[in-house]
């Protein structure tokens, strides 16, 4: 046999060696149907998040009632509340600790842009969660109604699967 160098025949490697079009669609459907949020309620929006988990608005219909305290077991981080300069490092660490695939929902005006605390003499509030990591869905409101959070989850599902699976309520 001897030792010889074997020239490599593959110059570029595709991102995924094997591609299953239908299976990816199925995996995405599975991911969208069972988004496990991380409990990251910081302030007032957390209460509306809890109301969404209650029995009237029932986030469990969308498979998302399993709020995991640990970032390592969750899919989506719902940033509900204001991010502070003191909390910045903790939030970034939590985001990094989440395994892929992961998504972020910015719930409430504070998480979108600093909200009512984006003032002239702002010395402590980070103006938006997207200054720290990429955000997938923005839900405006102060605080947004539970129906708005559900719409945000449906929008995230649309982003994951490629098409919206729930009827859109047209404004009347």
């Amino acid at each position: 046999m001897g030792e010889e160098s074997v020239p490599s025949s593959i110059e570029s490697v595709p991102s995924s060696i094997v591609q299953f079009a239908q299976l990816d669609k199925l995996l995405n459907l599975g991911r969208a149907n069972s988004l496990w949020p991380m409990t990251f309620g910081l302030a007032c929006c957390a209460i509306e998040m809890m109301c969404t988990g209650g029995s009237r608005y029932d986030i469990s219909r969308f498979g998302a009632e399993v709020f995991r305290p640990s970032p390592r077991q969750s899919d989506v981080m719902i940033v509900a509340g204001t991010i502070n300069k003191k909390l910045e490092l903790a939030v970034k660490t939590l985001y990094d600790q989440m395994p892929e695939p992961k998504w972020v929902i910015a719930m409430g005006n504070c998480a979108i842009s600093g909200g009512p605390f984006k003032v002239k003499n702002n010395y402590n509030v980070i103006e938006g969660a997207d200054k720290l990591f990429p955000v997938d869905v923005y839900i405006p409101g102060c605080p947004p109604r539970p129906e708005a959070l559900l719409e945000g989850i449906m929008t995230l599902e649309e982003k994951i699967t490629g098409k919206r699976r729930w009827p859109r309520v047209e404004s009347c």
């Binding site: 910081l42 003191k86 909390l87 605390f117 003499n121 702002n122 010395y123 402590n124 509030v125």
Partner: peptide
């Protein structure tokens, strides 16, 4: 961790 400057505002 959630000091939001109310007194300054």
């Amino acid at each position: 961790y959630i000091h939001r400057m109310h007194e300054k505002m």
